[in-house]
Design a binder for these strands. Structure first.
Lengths: 152, 152
DNA sequence: ACAGTTTTGCGACCAGCTCGCAAGTAGCGA
DNA sequence: TCGCTACTTGCGAGCTGGTCGCAAAACTGT
């Protein structure tokens, strides 16, 4: 399913790039998909499906929630996007431009990026120990941010 | 809310211990709670709420799903139990006797224990980096087990 | 512009979990 | 041992996040 990207995912943020990107990855560039991808490209960091739907609807009002979920699915199969499970809340979506982890504050929902390098030792330890290979892009680290920690 | 435990949580697995444990922690030892805690004590490792409900119902048939969830809530407030969020599936419950992490295979659901020590460097790195304090008992590490890896 | 296929919008549906309320029960004091 | 009171429970309804099937619409290659 995955093809080689011809465009630079990291830079693409103007309207036409989303369309080109979809085509480069060999999938149909429909209005809905372009709207979702544009929304994603124009947003910084991980985003919930609900918020992403709102952003996409700002560009293409008729777009349906189910379509957004399906689009996330195809983008994810293409390797353009990761979906990150964040505790009991809704899961997050983000561009697959890096393989950093995400830490989520349990109290306020604030998000921090955790460099992939910090997780490497854990990945090795787990593989050694149990043979399990971690998928670090797919889960969030539940945490408490400094601000919320003081309020506890 | 949390009190000092008078009994040894690690060993308690006969019927009367669950009741004593509840009282030691200063909460009412109702039939339902005793059944849930017994089920938990007699089970090895993390368990889903649905399965826990079945086990509890084997001891106390009239027990209701909602009660199990509420009981998990109180045991968790008492510090007897952790609830672990595992990807998109149902969350898991386990005795708070250790602070190891749980790794879950995304393909078959198999569970592996990850010693707390393996996560310590990551905890430090995240705290240093972003000020976030991880809550390692509350999230599962999504992974693929050795067997499923071969089948991919 | 057309045909063939993919994708969409829509509403119904599902799982996991929570809530409000009336009835039931545990635990305390007498 | 008996009552009283407050805490718990069972029950069903309800909520959230996410998925599905289907007919209609849209996209792409020719």
């Amino acid at each position: 399913m995955r093809r080689e990207p011809a465009a630079d995912l990291g830079q693409a943020s103007n309207p036409t790039d989303a369309e080109a990107l979809l085509r480069d990855y060999g999938c149909r560039a429909t209005r809905s998909r372009v709207a979702v991808l544009e929304a994603l490209l124009s947003h910084d960091g991980p985003i919930g499906a609900a918020e992403l739907t709102e952003l996409a609807q700002a560009r293409e009002p008729s777009i349906h929630e189910a379509t957004v979920y399906r689009t996330i699915g195809v983008l994810s199969e293409l390797g353009l996007v990761n979906h990150v499970h964040a505790g009991h809340g809704p899961s997050l979506v983000r561009l697959a431009t890096n393989n950093d982890l995400v830490a989520v504050c349990q109290d306020c929902g604030k998000i921090a990026d955790v460099p992939a390098a910090a997780v490497a030792p854990l990945i090795d330890a787990v593989k050694e120990d149990s043979g399990f290979v971690l998928e670090p892009g797919h889960f969030a680290l539940e945490a408490v941010c400094a601000t919320c920690l003081k309020l506890r």
